[in-house]
Computed example of a mutant assay.
Amino acid sequence: MQKTGLLFGSFNPIHIGHLALANYVLEYAPFDEVWFVVSPQNPLKNSEDLAPAQHRLAMTNLAINAEPRFKSSDIEFSMPVPSYTLNTLQRLNELHPTHDFSLIIGSDNLINIDRWHNFRTLLQEHSLLVYPRPEYPIEKAVIALPKSVNVLNAPMLDISSTLIRKGLKEKKNLRFLLPAGVYDYILQHRLYQQKKE
């Protein structure tokens, strides 16, 4: 069985924090591969600043092309929107029976997991790896953690896509917070520019 970590996200845009986390779990979880599952629309997030899904997938592919154990997945592009993680996991298991999938989530998501679609089934049927996020201690989780949840002692990087989008709107050069090629892609396609009044 191929041990595969699944990092779901809008990747709006993908940044060096995503890659550092994926690198860490690849080596320390350990996994054979980490897949970046690009979500067209997270049901718990505002879609106002969301770049088109194909652009986010293209930026993800640019970001990961130097590491053959990183893969991108657009599986949710052909599924109903909004995309629910449990449905995607079930579909991935059907399509890839030789993979042993684990979901990688931040402690911010764990604390709010009771807001997820069918979260009890998700926790019963799938293994989760949780990485720490600043200001979201795991002790704040509203549910008792089952054995399927493992907490990683991963380094905390306080970089967010929100911070990057805000900086780009303010015409900041944030090239080194983004993987190689992604900053130029954003400029070329005029993503995250200030909206015209």
Rank of each mutant, 00 (worst) to 15 (best):
S78E: 09
T88A: 13
F70L: 01
N42A: 00
Q90I: 06
Q90Y: 12
L92G: 00
R69Q: 05
V25M: 02
V34K: 14
N87A: 01
V37G: 08
L50T: 01
A58C: 05
Q90C: 00
L50R: 05
Y28C: 09
A22W: 08
S73N: 13
K45H: 10
Y28R: 13
I64W: 08
S102T: 02
A51D: 04
I75A: 12
I104L: 14
P82L: 04
P82Y: 10
V38Q: 02
A58H: 08
Y84E: 10
A63R: 00
T98E: 07
L50W: 04
H96Y: 15
F70Q: 02
A20V: 09
R69E: 05
V25C: 05
A63P: 02
L19G: 00
F101P: 04
L19I: 09
S83M: 02
N46W: 04
L44S: 07
H99M: 13
V37R: 12
E27W: 09
I105A: 08
F77D: 01
P82R: 04
T85S: 00
K45A: 07
N46R: 04
N46D: 09
D32F: 03
R91I: 00
E48G: 06
S78R: 13
Y84T: 05
N93L: 07
H18A: 03
M59H: 05
T60R: 03
Q54T: 08
L62I: 14
L57R: 04
V81D: 14
P40H: 13
R91K: 07
Y84A: 12
M79N: 00
H96F: 15
Y28P: 08
H18R: 12
T60H: 03
D49S: 07
N23W: 06
S47V: 04
A29G: 14
S72R: 02
W35E: 10
P80C: 04
V38F: 10
Y24P: 08
E48N: 14
W35V: 03
F31P: 01
E33W: 10
D100G: 00
A29C: 05
V34S: 12
